[in-house]
Amino acid sequence: MGCKSNTQAQRAYIRRMGIAMTAYLVSLFSGEYLVSRELVAGPVVWLLGLLPGLAIIGAFYAIAKLITETQDEFIRMLIVRQTLVATGVALSAATIWGFLENFELVPHVDAYWVAILWFLGFGIGALSNRITYGAWGQLR
């Protein structure tokens, strides 16, 4: 328990996030390469289409583990707060955009942008923590 455990949790977070982001980039670019050149077909295309999303799920898992493994209750509260801000930003933006799109007021946007917005919201959450509590929350 304590600072040492927090450091371990943060190191594990960085390691897991690094693995997830590497898997994301490799799967995305290899998938794009193989599909655009029609080197694969059928179920393999499905698999290649799923892999980048699964890698992003790995990033969400890394954040979930950071929350459960962080022993410092104040820091843990800040990370939870960050994820709530992220979820609020992503769901609000997706909902607003969805209705605007429904009335053909805005162009269609691919659903994976919700995850990108979530990570943007995660950054906004960290800024909110800094302003409200004087601490960024994670990796300090």
């Binding site: 328990m1 304590g2 600072c3 040492k4 927090n6 022993q71 410092d72 209750e73 104040f74 820091i75 509260m77 409200t132 509590y133 004087g134 601490a135 300090r140």
Partner: peptide, 26 residues
């Protein structure tokens, strides 16, 4: 104090300045 409590310095600062109320165990 943070080292003695096995928490981060940010936690001590937040409690000290009244920005965060500690749990009962803490």
């Amino acid at each position: 104090l943070a080292d003695r409590l096995e928490v981060s310095r940010q936690s001590v600062n937040a409690i000290e300045t009244g920005k965060y109320d500690p749990s009962l165990p803490l």
